[in-house]
Amino acid sequence: MQVKSKSVVVTGATSGIGFSVCELLLKNRFRVIGVGRSKENCEAARERLIEKYPEGEIVFFYGDMVHQQEVFRVASEIRDYLRKSSGDELHALINNAGCVRSWYMTSNEGYEHQFALNHLAGFILTHELLPCLIRAKGRILFTSSASHKMMRMRWKDLMFEKGYNPLLAYKQSKLCNMLFAYSLNEMYRDKGIAAYGVDPGLVNTSIGNKETGFIVNLVWSIRRRFGVSPDEPAKTYLMLCTVETPPNELYFKFLKPARYSSQVNKENADRLFAISEQLCNIRYER
């Protein structure tokens, strides 16, 4: 008898960490639902994956998740697909899509890109897929980073409108990932949901070379050479998806729980949660 495979959604799945995670998930017989920005990237990624795992179940949805309309559209496409393919159950959501920007840029809603994509996109997608996740007692993973440390939320200027700093905006967005994971555990642990932040370490991906200027490009091109292959952090994602009893820790690096910033606390988490609900015009069931 064939074992029913479990579905996992991976955003930012066409390259870097997301792509490696997809590979590993397919290898372990998960049904993979990838999300990427453009149709071309998604098709190319799908072809590469199918070539390696011809038996694998892999489907892609595309959309520029920096804009909220696009996130809602992609989410509803995924829900349709889950209904047809997986009994409306989602085993894991991996909120991995992220960007770096050299300059202050805004989404269609006028929200700063790194905040909008690295945090708000995951905030909406999680909300839209939560019923499916609850049914499967699923897991929610975030690609956070050690750069969330040594950073405080800039509550008075969340979108860096007083003067943009690419690195600080990135650090804050990764702190947001930790705070959101914290909130999800607080709210839905008793429903069987477990949320984690993953520190992938320094990874050799092209994140700093996409839509950035000369300086950020140059700095990242040098820095990424010291990074590990994205296959390394992918193992941590797989472990968190497969481990029988979900661990109680919040933050993982190289398969092990790691220390996170003291800024990741209930006060900050609640505050960010309320602001995010307001900015996305959605309300999580309490």
Binding site: Y104, M105, K162, E211, G213
Partner: peptide, 19 residues
């Protein structure tokens, strides 16, 4: 952004922060 990057360093140097 493509337009700016295509000018190399001068692109960065002549780009003004919108905010």
């Amino acid at each position: 952004i493509c337009g700016i990057t295509s000018q190399g360093f001068l692109g960065d140097a002549t780009t003004n922060p919108i905010e």
